[in-house]
Design a protein around this nucleic acid. Structure first.
Lengths: 245, 245
DNA sequence: CTTATCATTCTAACATGTTAGTTGACAAGC
DNA sequence: GCTTGTCAACTAACATGTTAGAATGATAAG
């Protein structure tokens, strides 16, 4: 019945001998495997296999799984098992909503308090992004894109904003990696970033928010396409919104 | 040197024989003690005492503490100890910022999609709040206040928004309990809520956001007063923003 | 052929033993 | 008096043994 429901833990990054708590390394290792879709939705995690593969005991693995569960990346069924969570459109919509709420507040604050240094750094980021688009370096632009948003958040002067934004939209991030970025799309993204930066530099709060909203608005339709194309990655929600399987 | 740095775990709610995972009950028990300021900032948690007091082993306590640490309510120093975290103005400012970001997005969405039923429920909440203010029932109004905000969040149709809002502003919640609510303040709060609801019912997005911003804007100045009055609850940040003690 | 029961075999949750790193006191040297 | 080095006590982190509940599949009854 269950052909390959179980996970092949060979994809886990071996624990580097580097510093850092063991449970943290286990956490990152599994998290990366999930976000990179090397663990597919529905597969169940086998603690024993993970322990063998990483050469650690169950304690740090248990702690890592607890954290992943709190972030919604895995569903843990007491006394039964732990499975990689399916995508769920309601959850993703909520993640997009939360993300937009934060990004808009960030843009508002940054526009209001932008320093000259920050302006220079923004321009520098845009030049880098332009370069990457000219070179059709899609994965490079992907990274620069994330860095751009993190940059804006760091300009608020708050430390946790970026973390919170990442956490509330983890499911979105996971889905986003399946949206094959096209040369056409990164050109659009670049233009949208340009509009955001222009509005910020012009100290135009409303324009900056609108530009950010337009930028983020591109995401949801593309995820809906993914939903149609790969429905097996999504759960079937019951009437109560509860999940099956 | 350390007089009463250690915690008296007698304030912990005894584990009810009710259902629910053990670690969850431990988590809630400690969390309530922290939010209720029964554990004061700077005190250190002694796992052994907590285990004795609650009659559980170290495993569920460890998991509970891990969660509390991720929420910033405790600071855990590896191989050394776990202490109740101090208040920190930067953290609280960040919490207020995040909270406002969410509440504004909520108000925006709710105003746009309000149903008749939701309008009725809002009016019902306002009548209840009015009643409590007329009776000078301060703690009753406090609860109704929280319920009002949760109500708005629930109207978005999203489940996690309320949880996220609570989590990002946990430190704010903890500080808020020390702001003795006055009869004067709850009258003001009621009026501010009234303004928010009126704008929502009038489907006026901008007014609703402004009203919410004014409402939330009352909080920070009062916390600054707390900072002046009880500086011992706050940490002294170094130049890097790192904490001492 | 369908359905109910039950035992086997999983698993997470919990308990407890062990390890290694931090802290603070105290003594020796400056 | 002040610094520095050693050591004992304490703690979180990790390893491992134990328990109880859930899923599965075989078997028996209808």
């Amino acid at each position: 019945m269950n052909k390959d429901q179980d996970i092949n833990p060979r994809v886990l990054n071996h624990i580097s001998a580097s510093e850092g708590a063991l449970s943290q390394q286990v956490y990152l290792s599994i998290k990366n495997a999930i976000l990179g879709m090397e663990f597919r939705p529905g597969q169940n995690l086998r603690k024993a296999l993970i322990c063998d593969q990483l050469g650690v005991s169950r304690a740090p693995v248990a702690e890592a799984i607890t954290r992943l569960a709190s972030e919604g990346l895995v569903d843990v069924v007491p006394q039964s098992g732990t499975r990689i969570s399916y995508f769920s459109m309601p959850e993703i919509q909520e993640g997009v909503f939360l993300r937009e709420a934060l990004e808009l507040a960030v843009v508002r604050k940054v526009t209001r308090h932008l320093t000259e240094d920050q302006g220079r750094i923004l321009n520098r980021s845009m030049r880098l992004q332009t370069l990457l688009v000219e070179d059709d370096d899609i994965s490079g632009f992907y990274e620069a894109d994330e860095a751009f948003h993190e940059l804006l958040m760091s300009f608020t002067g708050f430390d946790r904003v970026a973390d919170v934004a990442q956490t509330v939209s983890l499911q979105v991030s996971r889905a986003r990696r399946l949206l094959l970025p096209t040369p056409g799309r990164i050109v659009e993204s670049l233009e949208e970033h340009r509009a955001i930066v222009d509005a910020i530099l012009a100290r135009n709060e409303q324009d900056a928010q609108d530009a950010m909203r337009r930028h983020l608005g591109q995401l949801m339709p593309r995820i809906e396409l993914l939903h149609e194309r790969m429905p097996e990655l999504f759960n079937r929600a019951t009437s109560e919104g509860r999940e099956i399987a």
